[in-house]
Design a protein around this nucleic acid. Structure first.
Lengths: 299, 299
DNA sequence: ATGCAACCATAGCCGATATCTATGGCTTAT
DNA sequence: ATAAGCCATAGATATCGGCTATGGTTGCAT
């Protein structure tokens, strides 16, 4: 069966006239005639009674007409649905961020995202790097924002901004008094870290790998905020990504945040998505928004 | 848009695999691949994300899938509807009979019709000849049973049986005593007739045209039954079609029905339908039932 | 009654397109 | 590293929808 034939049939039923129906369908009369006959043949029933002066529906035609109408209407619905959301910058988009980025980056982004991509409905999730990548590959989410590099198989990545690390020390620490802190200054300090699974933990270990800072054996924080509490309580020092030290998250309450001296250790934050993703346009648009937002902040 | 493409799409969504979907659709994989791409192109949206190991629906594909499913289901419904009632001897059929035939013929027919054409749902109507022909031409009914001949333009007719006329006289009439009645015997009698519009009226006038029977000026009956009452009341004589004198409708209650002597005047009862009718098979079947029924009765 | 106009069906041809096989490119698994 | 799985591409072919021209009825008007 063919939707075109159904359209011919419905038009013929409406006009009661092969010639007029053909005209309305923008085909010749013999074409419509032949297709109607083909449809009747396929269904094995006569739909139309060809009376001399007009055509009339048979009982079967009367029964089938509303069904045909509904099908055509639904096909129009599909087209309308597709055409309406033709815009690649609309619809839902599932985005996940790692916990050490999400809470600090999103507040900076949301206003601009809403302005630049008003039709994009972002569904936001928070996962650690590995689960995020798994869900990305599984198609559960479309875009991940995390620290690069990560193993990319079937995935594509784009660096968005460089995020310096800072060091958070108790107010009463000697380090709190220095103008800036060199990585080596951390030698001998007790290093507080997040629990396993957080990439920040690995990054911090990486930064401090060459020196002799000791990781605290007893405590592993589950979030940057608990980590911050632990530093303020004087249990040790820790590295914080710069965004987690801005605004309300800065120094204070027993804790001092210090810049690193050059070369400033940093991590690269980027976007990751499936190579095969159908939403690359939206992904690029979001990436661009993040990039420009971060550039503006740096100034 | 094409139903075939929707079927490909739905199957692909079900299998998650171009090759398997193609196999299930009995086409080659490139064919299905191309058609899916064509559909996406037509809709202007990507429906399928081609991941390395499996294919996944995009958000749009997820939205469209149920609509596509429903359309296919409805197309199947249409086919099923047509195929089920493929049988030309099923469905509704609107049949009209003239008043001087219907009440007397139908009781003889119904049992056999129900047995021979069990799936045919007869909608029965009663109209006088002219309205019947009008409604036939208008497509309001499919078949008419009436007295032939009638003007046939665009209509087709088939004679079914010959129906002799009888003469109904009051019990106390001289005619009631004769073995049989010649047409000429009616000379001088008062002839009671149906009102205008009934073909039986014209037929009776035709039969009695050559002789000098006088039509009653005062009374015109609206039905055979009132006509019968009038004869029994001694107001005159009338012609009755033979079927209207059978069984419970025979002599009695002050009225005697006499056969005519040869040549017995008679009318031809036939079926009439539109030449273009889509139900000729059913019409032929009904006609055949009437014919054989009447032959059996004659014996 | 005869010719004409309206209308659907048929015939024959053509171009679009759905389909096939063969093959290429990419990814993943062994 | 090699092979296997899988979708896309390329090119050939067949099917089918489309057109024009024409035929056959029917109904209408002169």
């Amino acid at each position: 069966m063919n939707l075109r034939d159904l359209r011919y049939f419905v038009t013929l039923a409406d006009t009661g006239h092969f010639g007029k129906a053909a005209e309305r369908c923008f085909v010749s009369q013999p074409t419509l005639s032949a297709q109607i006959k083909k449809l009747e043949n396929y269904l094995g029933v006569q739909l139309i009674e060809r009376q001399p002066r007009r055509v009339a529906l048979t009982e079967m035609g009367t029964k089938i007409l509303p069904l045909a109408r509904r099908m055509l209407q639904e096909s129009d619905e599909i087209v309308a649905l597709a055409r309406n959301e033709h815009d690649p910058l609309s619809g839902k988009l599932k985005v996940a961020l790692i916990p050490t980025i999400g809470p600090y980056l999103l507040p900076l982004l949301m206003r601009k995202l809403r302005r630049k991509l008003p039709r994009l409905k972002l569904m936001l999730y928070e996962y650690q790097t590995q689960p995020l990548l798994d869900k990305l590959r599984a198609g559960d989410i479309e875009l991940g924002i995390l620290a690069l590099p990560v193993p990319l198989d079937g995935l594509e990545a784009r660096a968005l901004y460089r995020e310096p690390f800072t060091v958070a020390v108790p107010n009463n620490s000697d380090l709190a008094k220095k103008a800036n802190v060199k990585v080596e200054d951390l030698s001998g300090e007790t290093l507080l870290l997040l629990e396993d699974g957080h990439c920040l933990r690995d990054q911090a270990l990486d930064v401090c790998g060459r020196i002799e800072a000791r990781e605290s054996e007893d405590y592993r924080a589950t979030s940057l905020e608990t980590l911050r509490q632990m530093v303020a309580a004087g249990l040790g020092v820790t590295l914080l990504p710069e965004l987690a030290t801005r605004g309300p998250f800065g120094s204070g309450q027993g804790l001092t945040v210090k810049q690193f001296a050059r070369p400033v250790p940093a991590r690269t934050v980027g976007a990751v998505w499936r190579k095969s993703s159908a939403r690359t346009e939206a992904i690029n648009a979001i990436s661009a928004v993040i990039e420009t937002t971060m550039k503006e902040i740096k100034k």
